[in-house]
Design a protein around this nucleic acid. Structure first.
Length: 528
DNA sequence: TGGGGTCCT
DNA sequence: AGGACCC
């Protein structure tokens, strides 16, 4: 083995590496296989082995692998799915209740491995397990499951062994989900969220794949089209195509000012980083939802009587969810999709403040059955509806949605004295001094303390812990070297080459007081 | 072309 | 309030 050498590190510090140096984090992305279909098959095992599609209105939103083998695809219309596969069995998936319930069970299983779990939809989770990684003796680590494009080069930062350990944790998580819940899943293991998610899809049902850091550029360019990068949606894609950017490589090499013109500095910079496989975003602990809603689409309706009926039905559904949540929202939003004369639809929404009465000690009644409360909310909703429809006499509505938000932010209560630190004994020695205390080197506190905390305080603590975890938040404000007038947050995210170019420009400007209007810096200056 | 969500502008 | 993104 050769000696470590700072110059060498510089040479090999490509753009795909994290600018904060090395690949410090270990992120696991867990993706449940054909989620709705699996839940339906667990609820009704007689469906197993047969082609099954989950329908919502006119669409097959997902289907099991038997159906995929027969040509059914996600988001296919019912009609074409049945043409492809006449034997397709359809289950209605418009009510998400069962899917929500299983999703919570999955979340709790994952939480038993790390407090840093972020939900994405009902069937995906990111887990940051960096703090679970141990320094091992000279044991050769083996990756569990697949390795993406296995190669011989080893990153000097030591991430290979940590990712291998991550793959073992991922394997345990998936075994756990399978044994306890009967759920099969895929996992991707990598040093950031983007790459973990992407690599997990390379071996598809019921498997897992680890990305070693030396292959990150190879993985991202294998996507071929920028639209395949999570974070680049249809709107951004349209603008990229207008610039003639239709490959990952073109996105990588397009001058940042060109992207900035089309997308703004923040988005431009972000997606160019994504195109190199760079993603410094942290795993954000999923706390209680910020909004709880329900919506329903239907064939056009034209009378307030019909609207009222639909809204009452929706209100019953959403109130059940709000009651179960337990908090009292203070905002109510109505969403309406109008059929526009010119054939295409438009969504509009109106929001208002409410006093939410049910839930806690309402003496007259409680729960979703409080008729007076419901009537008041219905009145509010119809008022919002009127605001949207206005003086339009020939309206047609094809969707109604209700959403409650404005939940108390748990941040408000009891300041100074009862700092969250009071929950942590200043212990200098662990209760069991010298044990292999399973994973990791946490000097901070014993995780069992967390179990005793009130839920809201516990959440606060975990968030705080996450913010302090160096590996989980590389985005510390470091204004050092940032050129004048440039948002340090933006500057910090720029690829190394660009940052250096900006700094070079600044030096130039300082030396010669000549003002050029056509330089890079102007694109990063804050508007003023 | 669904029924949810989040964050940013 | 709307628009972008995610599933």
């Amino acid at each position: 083995m050769e000696e470590e050498n700072g110059d060498q590190e510089l040479l090999f510090n490509t753009s795909a590496d994290q600018s904060t140096k090395k690949h410090e984090r270990v992120i696991i992305h867990i993706d449940i296989d054909c989620y709705y279909a699996q839940v339906e098959m667990i609820l009704n095992p007689s469906l197993c082995g047969k082609p099954l599609g989950i329908k919502q209105k006119n669409l097959v939103v997902t289907c099991n692998y038997e159906a995929r083998a027969l040509g059914v695809e996600k988001l296919m219309t019912i009609k074409s799915a049945l043409e492809k596969c006449p034997s397709l069995i359809l289950a209605n998936g418009e009510d998400l209740k069962n899917y929500r319930e299983m999703s919570e069970k999955i979340y709790h299983v994952l939480q038993s491995y790390s407090p840093f779990v972020e939900k994405l939809g009902l069937d995906e989770n990111f887990v940051d397990v960096t703090h679970k990684i141990m320094k091992l003796p000279e044991v050769q680590q083996v990756v569990s499951g697949h390795t993406f494009q296995d190669s011989d080069d080893i990153c000097a930062c030591g991430c290979t062994e940590r990712l291998a350990q991550g793959s073992l944790i991922a394997q345990k998580m998936r075994d756990h989900l399978r044994n306890e819940l009967g759920i099969t899943s895929c996992a991707g293991i990598a040093f950031n969220k983007l790459l973990a998610k992407l690599v997990g899809t390379t071996h598809k049902p019921n498997q897992q794949t680890t990305l070693l850091s030396t292959s990150s550029l190879s993985l991202i360019t294998s996507l071929k089209h920028p639209r395949n990068i999570p974070g680049i949606g249809s709107a951004i894609n349209r603008k990229l195509e207008a610039l003639g950017i239709d490959t990952i490589e073109k996105l990588q090499s397009t001058e940042i000012f060109k992207l900035t013109e089309a997308l703004g500095a923040k988005t431009a910079n972000q997606i160019q980083q994504l195109s190199f496989g760079i993603d410094n975003s942290r795993v954000k602990i999923t706390d209680r939802p910020k909004s709880i809603g329900a919506e329903d689409g239907f064939i056009p309706i034209r009378s307030e009587v019909e609207v009222r009926k639909k809204l009452m039905c929706l209100l019953d559904r959403v109130l059940e969810l709000v009651e179960k949540d337990g908090r009292k929202p203070n905002q109510l939003k109505l969403t309406v999709r109008k059929l526009h004369p010119s054939s295409h639809s438009v969504r509009e929404s109106r929001q208002t403040t409410i006093e939410y009465a049910t839930g806690t000690g309402s003496s007259t009644n409680q729960g979703p059955g409080d008729e007076k409360h419901k009537i008041k909310l219905m009145t509010t909703l119809m008022n919002l509806f009127e605001k949207i429809i206005g003086c339009d006499v020939s309206w047609q509505v094809t969707l109604l949605g209700i959403s409650f938000s404005g939940y108390p932010s748990k941040n408000s209560e009891s300041p100074a004295e009862n700092s969250i630190n009071k929950y942590f004994p200043v212990k200098t020695s662990s209760s069991r001094p010298d044990e292999p205390l399973p994973p990791a080197k946490r000097g901070r506190f014993d995780e069992s303390v967390l179990q005793e905390l009130p839920p809201d305080i516990r959440q606060e603590v975990l968030e705080d812990m996450q913010n302090q975890l160096p590996s989980s938040d590389p985005q510390k404000p470091t204004d050092s070297n940032c050129p004048k007038g440039v948002d340090p947050l933006v500057f910090r995210e720029l690829p190394v080459e660009i940052r250096e170019e900006l700094l070079a420009e600044e030096r130039m400007k300082k030396q010669s007081n000549i003002k050029k209007s056509n330089n890079l810096l102007q694109y990063f200056r804050k508007a003023s």
